[in-house]
Nucleic acid binder design. Sequence first.
DNA 1: CGGTATCCGTACTGATACTG
DNA 2: CAGTATCAGTACGGATACCG
Lengths: 130, 130
Amino acid sequence: MKSLSEAVRRGELHTADCPSRDELKHASSLWGVLCLLALRGETLRFSELRRRATGVSEKMLAQTLKRLEKDGLVERVAHPVVPPHVEYSLTSLGQGLTEHVAALADWIEFNLPEIMAARRATGDLTEPVQ
Amino acid sequence: MKSLSEAVRRGELHTADCPSRDELKHASSLWGVLCLLALRGETLRFSELRRRATGVSEKMLAQTLKRLEKDGLVERVAHPVVPPHVEYSLTSLGQGLTEHVAALADWIEFNLPEIMAARRATGDLTEPVQ
DNA sequence: CGGTATCCGTACTGATACTG
DNA sequence: CAGTATCAGTACGGATACCG
């Protein structure tokens, strides 16, 4: 099987038979990434998750969790008690993905000084951030 | 310094002193990822890149490349010839990032069957993929 | 507590036209 | 060829309010 990067090279990422791209888009959404990282190694409730992925709105969090659950990356367990209690955790599939996401996130964190330096050197002369 | 995943766990990702998140957002934009993957191991011209990251509009591609260049991940070399000739390639910094992105992309590709199976089992009763 | 429904602004997209 | 500029349509994200 060819790799995704191979597929990119051949321009095969738009066809309907390549759902990798959808999944790539899902996995690379900011909130998706933040949820995965937050759930790494622990089980969290909705509100805890909301605190972890600071800045997420309830709507986006709910939507993101739904998609992650739908993709089999996150498991949702609702306890039918009077104050609702719902717990989210990574499935084994989600754990596998999260390892890669965490590696990427940590790379960014580690190399941030260099990135910031580059940004200062090349960029904002021409244009403000955007 | 602590890792990004650690930071997520402590809910420290919204403060101004944590630009990792911006960078994470950049790096995880679909077009950004596709550009990085396309440039992996080779130098491409604008139009080639456009063909690779199929579906991107000229506007978005230009915008994405600018950001990647500004962050020091992609190098832009313009040859001042009559039919303009511009080449894009990864910087060493960009190569480092792209390795991780590619690892993640390939993981997705490899595990896609399982993801699709999960999606069918849990999800699309409520909503079409979109 | 754990969401859903609604509104609204921004960002993205696609098409087209223009420049060097 | 490699963009930039502009416009109109759409989708996405955020804030608020409300429900079980």
